[in-house]
Structures are given as C-alpha cells and as structure tokens.
Write a protein that binds this DNA or RNA. Structure first.
Lengths: 306, 306
DNA sequence: CCTTCTTATGAGCAAAATTCATGATTATGT
DNA sequence: ACATAATCATGAATTTTGCTCATAAGAAGG
C-alpha cells in the first residue's frame, strides 16, 4: 500500500544537496547502486520519473521537484522527532504531573517549583488537585506521576518518602485569651468558631488527633478555601484555625496571628512524596525528589539552630 | 542512522484508532505479530517505551503520545504526496511551460488558454518570452515544454505541428492613399514610416519576405511594444505596420485601420507548436495540441465559408 | 473457573535491500 | 583527439530485514 518511504525523501535531498548519486551515497552511508535501485523502484511503483537522466547528470522532473519540496518539509520533522524521543529516553524531557492532597502541600510545592523548573528547562509541571479515586488511585492509574500527601499508603508498586516535617498549631487573633498560652487543651475550644479548609473531617488533624479523641466539638465550623482569607478572619477575631506553624510564621508580618501548641505534646505532621516504583529511574523525577530531600535537610538544620 | 520510519507512524495511528494491536494489524494487512515486533524494535532502538503494557491493553506513554501527534501530522502528508504523484503519473497535474517567440502568437494563445484551463483544472500554465538560447534551445534545455513559434526547426527529438494559418498584411490608417488598394508593392513603402515590434529585422517577415528581396528600406523604422498602441499610431496616420490579417479585423471596430495585401500573392504565415518527442505522451500536453488542432479546423471552415 | 481475547516471543522463511562487479555513457584534461 | 576519470544503470549474489506461524503468558468476562 505505502510506496513512499523516508529513505526516498532522504535520497532526494542528498542528491539535491550533493549533486550526484555517488556523493549522496557517501553521506547516506550506502552505495551508489543502492540509491539507484531504490529510486528506480519508487519510479516504477509511482509510474513517474523523478529525474531526467542526461549523460552523467540527474535533473529533477516536475514530479521530482515536488517530491524534493515534500522531502525538505518532512525530513527535518523526522529528525526532530527522533531528537525529542532521545530526550524522553534520557529523562531530559517530559511532563511531571503532580497531585496535591493537602492545602499546606501546595505552599510547600511553590517553593520547590522555581528552582526545579530552572534546572530542568525541558520538563513541564502539571499540578492536579482533583482525583476521581484519591491520590493513591491517581498515582496507580497514571493520572499523576508524583503525589504530595500527608498520608502515605505503603503498597507494592509505590514508594513514599517524607520531605517536610512541621507542627500543626492553633492560630488565634491578637485579642484572643489563648494568645500567649504555652498550649491549648481540647476543652478550651468547645466555645470557639473553628475555621478550616473545605475538606472532610477525617482529613483534618485537629479533629482526628485532638478534638475527636477528647469528644469535643467546636461551637461552630466554618469552611474557607484560601489561606489568606482564613488568616484575615482569625486576625479579626472571627474564629480560630489550625495550620502548619511555618505558615503562621510566614504570615506573621502580614496579619496579627499567633500560634498556640495543640496539647502539651503538639501535633507533629509530615508531608510525603509518593511515586510509582516503575518510575524510580526517570531522571527528572529523581531530580525532583533529590531537590525536595536537599531542601528538607537544610530546613532541619535551621530548625535545630534555633 | 534513521530509526523512525513511516510504518511506525502508521502503526501508532492504527492502534490509537482501533484500540488494539490485533485490530490495527487487520487494517494494515499485517499480523499482530508483525506490529508487535516492529514497535518493539523501535522501542529498543530509541530506548524509550511507546506504550505501557497493562494486561491486554496498550496505553501510550508520554513518548507515545508525542509520537502519535507526530504521526497524525506526518502520515496524511505522505498520503497526499502519493496522491499528487499519482496525478503527475496520470498526466492530470503539472505545469505547462509555454514559450512564445512572436507577438501574434500571444494573441492566439490567449484564445486557447481559457478553454484549456477549464478542461484541466490541475494544470498550471506558465508563459515565458525571454530565452537565453532561443525558443528551440529553451525547449531542449527543459526551460519550457511547449514552443509557440512561426519558425519550426525540424530536429531529432522535437516535434512541430502547424496550428494557425494567417496572412501578414500591411495596416494603414483611414487617410492613407493605399487604404483601398488591392495590394501594395515594396517600392510604395520607401517613403513610409514603418512601425514594428521591437525584435531583430531577420525576424520580421515584412523585411525578410518583402522589403529586403526588393532592396527597399522604409523612410523610418519605429519600434512599439504593444499591439494597441501600434494600431493607434497607424490609425492616426503616424505610420504603417505589418500584422496578421485576423488581428487587424479584430481591432477594426476599435480603430480605423485597414489591411492591404503585401505584394500580389500576399505573405502567408503559419504558427507552429513544438514539443519534445519524449513528452508526446503526456496527457495534458496532448490535450493542448488537440485543442489547438480543433480550433484550427473550425477556423479554416469559417474562412472557406466566406 | 473456564473461555476468550489480548500481547509477547522465538524460529523459520520469504522478501526486500544492499553490495559487488561490470557496462555504457559522457564529461575532462592532456 | 584520445585517453582518463567520473557518472549512472543493471543483473546477480548476498546479506539483512521483515513477516508469518505457532505458541506462551497474562488478563478480562461470563
């Protein structure tokens, strides 16, 4: 069915550039005879001559001119495609699809993204926050390549690694009675308005690890999407929230908000990165993990210095 | 050197469209095994997987998605090129490059061109009037495919055929003493201003076949490029010219010009079409000759009816 | 659980591509 | 003008490639 092949286009181009079959054969690492046979067969199959043979010269016919134009258009695209695929093979190029399962994760990712994109110019990032079957499912189903989550699920085929430790604290406004307390007990929140991100209660540590074990509920529960607005509400005394300590510290200059330890021990949390085991040797993915790891180490050091 | 071939792109597309190797194999008239081997080899050579194999399904990897996009872009271009070349082979498509060696020829060509272009929508006309080595040379050197000339040169490799007969006449204005003469003798032009196209004298029949044999020269010789201006000059009594009788008749309504026979016998001329013998079987070229021939026959008939 | 449908794989074979050797033709240089 | 060198074409031999067949292994569906 198919008559015209890449090799024919390469031959047309080479002959055009080098002026003769013989010269073209050298650059294509074939013999003059091979090219002659090749084009002869093409001409037979198409029923049209590509060249006029005049003495020892070859001059393109109208069909040959047309075919040469096609060759000049298509041949570079083959070469380019092969180069691209080589980059894919080397792990230099690709799209890293990152799934996020927690709001603080996103704040963390923003800090990693900039240096990563600079180091891997041929890699695109794609951040996805809605999954049909949860983050783990998305990882398994190849919807994403990397999962950023506080809840690792060690399963065969998946690899998880902690990349960020932090303390989850209560955030209160400047006029709040708990503002200067060393810590807060669950009972002290019974009369409070609690502001959280709009997710189910079983994914909120302040419930699962603080209020629910003590059998306490806040007076009211408000849902707010963004961190800025949440902190604005807290600063103006309209409620309290639970957030990572480092986020509270980061916003301290902007809003009058104050961290209070949750319980005497505090609630310690970790963010994990999860990947498919099969992807463990993709360069740009390893590089992301390495960057996250390096950042973790330097952060720990800073925290110890305090 | 070259790894990626047209067949790989065809396979990628077929699998994408039909969902499985097996189904794709049917449409490509190959076995499932052939496709499997083919892509496997491609993957080995590129060092990158095209599909993730999951159970009995094939899902494109990032590289596969990219390659599919390439396939969707390039594959139709191959098909289109083959279709074009098939048209070249059938003589349905091409560019007919016509060389013109005489001014009246051009007037004649205009009449042929319209019906020809309508009948051969895929054929382009290209009219060329300047040749480095004359019309015959241009035909030999493949600068043109068809020569319209009053001077056939029968040579091996070329075919000539007369397509138009006409009488070359003297044209005079309304106040000219020769206006109603049955014919003119060379001596009567000795005191005239002769207007001709700007070509060498050996290509002007009024010299070669009328004035020069009688040893006569006109009083002055003016050169004018276009037929309209030439006739305007003649009509206003600024000189006389030599043109085909049918051109004079055609412009008779527009300008007050009158034909006078050159000598008692008149000067009879013919226009010939010349082609390369090797091109004699090109459909769109034969069609042009046939159209010219048909027109000649109908014109002769009209002339006989008078 | 068995059947069915999928892809993968290795061996053998057929076909295609390539090379080799050579001939024919035509520029080129002496 | 003639020998020389360079070109492309061609047919046969050879190598390489691609394809099919037979079959295995794995997964989906009734």
């Amino acid at each position: 069915m198919a008559i015209l092949e890449r090799i024919h286009l390469e031959i047309l181009r080479a002959v055009d550039r080098h002026g003769s079959l013989t010269a073209a054969a050298d650059t294509l690492h074939l013999t003059q005879s091979a090219l002659s046979h090749s084009i002869r067969k093409l001409e037979d199959q198409l029923g049209v001559a590509v060249w006029r043979r005049e003495g020892r010269g070859l001059h393109p016919t109208q069909a040959g001119e047309y075919l040469l134009a096609v060759a000049n258009r298509l041949t570079p695209q083959f070469a380019h495609a092969e180069e691209r695929l080589r980059q894919f093979a080397q792990g230099e190029r690709g799209t890293l699809r990152i799934g996020m399962e927690c709001h603080p994760c996103y704040q963390w990712l923003l800090k990693i993204a900039a240096p990563y994109l600079a180091a891997w110019p041929e890699v695109d990032l794609d951040v996805i926050q809605k999954f049909q079957f949860g983050g783990i499912g998305a990882l398994f189903g190849h919807e994403i390549d990397l999962l950023v989550t506080p809840d690792p699920l060690y399963r065969t085929g998946l690899l998880f690694e902690p990349v960020f430790d932090y303390e989850q604290v209560l955030v209160v406004g400047p006029g709040h009675p708990l503002r200067d307390s060393s810590h807060v007990q669950p009972e002290q929140l019974a009369g409070e308005i609690l502001i959280t991100y709009p997710v189910t209660i079983d994914r909120l540590d302040i419930y699962t690890r603080f209020l629910t074990p003590a059998g306490i509920s806040p007076k009211r529960h408000k849902l707010i999407e963004t961190t800025d607005i949440m902190l604005q509400m807290v600063a103006s005394g309209r409620g309290v929230a639970a957030l990572p300590r480092w986020i509270v510290e980061e916003y301290a200059g902007q809003f009058a908000v104050f961290p209070v330890r949750l319980g005497a021990e505090g609630i310690d949390k970790q963010i994990f990165l999860g990947i498919r085991e099969a992807d463990a040797d993709i360069d740009y993915l390893r590089a992301f993990l390495a960057l996250a790891r390096a950042r973790r180490d330097s952060t720990e050091q800073r925290q110890q210095e305090r």
